Computed example of a mutant assay.
Amino acid sequence: MDGVELLTIGEIAARSRLSPKALRLYDRLGLLAPARVDSATGYRWYRPDQVERARLVALLRQLDMPLARIAEVIALPGEQAAAEVAAYWTGIEERHAVRSAVAAHIRDRLSGRRTHMYEVRTVDAPEQAVLTERRHLLTDELPRWIPAALGRLTGVAGECGGVAGAPFVVYHSDMSLDTDGSAEACVPVADRAAAQAYVTAATGGGRTADLRVEPARHLAYVRITKAQVAHPQILSAFQAAEEWISARGLTISGPCREIYFADWDAASASDEVCDIAFPVE
């Protein structure tokens, strides 16, 4: 380090607004290694050009970015690092939006205020053969998994006589942001024999679907728009259906489901796209 005037840990702490304790932690984690360490005392010195790196680490910590991710960001070239920060902050904003919606839903529920009144209807659904894909998921994984799973199953159905009805998702157990639950994507298929042959032949690594028979059911359902499908707004629809069923002395006889009867991509936020349904007796 001949010819370079090194900074003490106190000096770089003052310039970067990081505490000496934080600097020692970042050294242990490999985020900001000092230019020289005294072998006898353990005292640290830093190069002046490390001030900017220290300031960047401090700024990223203000975003509550985990230290492991900070290490990844500062190791990237400028444009890639900027893109990674943008992706991280987009995720933060999305989670904040979800929490804001949850808070509004809880407030309305506690106050007894309803922002939307739902009409509950009933229908008899016939027995049908369905191609299925089942997965354990958290609530925030559903928006990505549902369209992907239904897309895969629709592709298989295309080789088995085509799709014979509206695709749907069955919830076999409760789930939340912290606890996963069992969800089953289902696509009715026209040719049961062809679907069975496909599933049997695909047993093993290439298998993308199972086949089962969904029994005939009497359903009580609420129809909702694309905007209302988002969590937690959708919980109000589930609650409305459950209250209607209870008020009429009916019994829920199977797991709840979301039936997607419209073209999701072509629908606007105000278009009706989904039925929230409960099998009842």
Rank of each mutant, 00 (worst) to 15 (best):
I234G: 01
L211S: 05
R217C: 11
R192I: 06
L137G: 02
L219K: 04
Y46S: 09
A87N: 12
A164N: 03
C256S: 15
D108V: 08
A82R: 10
R152Y: 04
D49N: 09
E242Y: 11
E272K: 08
P215N: 10
D265E: 14
P188W: 02
R24F: 10
E141P: 00
S16Y: 03
A33R: 15
G3I: 07
S173M: 12
C274P: 06
A193V: 13
E84S: 09
S268C: 05
A220L: 14
I12A: 07
I12W: 04
Y26Q: 07
R44N: 08
T225P: 06
R47Y: 07
V189C: 02
S39Y: 07
E94V: 11
A247H: 12
G10W: 14
M1P: 08
D210Y: 05
R95Y: 11
A166F: 10
I252M: 12
A216G: 12
G165P: 02
A82T: 11
L7T: 01
V213T: 15
L150C: 00
D263V: 05
T115C: 08
L150F: 01
H231W: 15
G30R: 14
P34G: 11
F261E: 04
F238N: 06
W145K: 01
D140Y: 10
A14Q: 14
G42W: 10
A227T: 02
P66A: 11
S176K: 09
A149F: 00
L25C: 07
A81V: 09
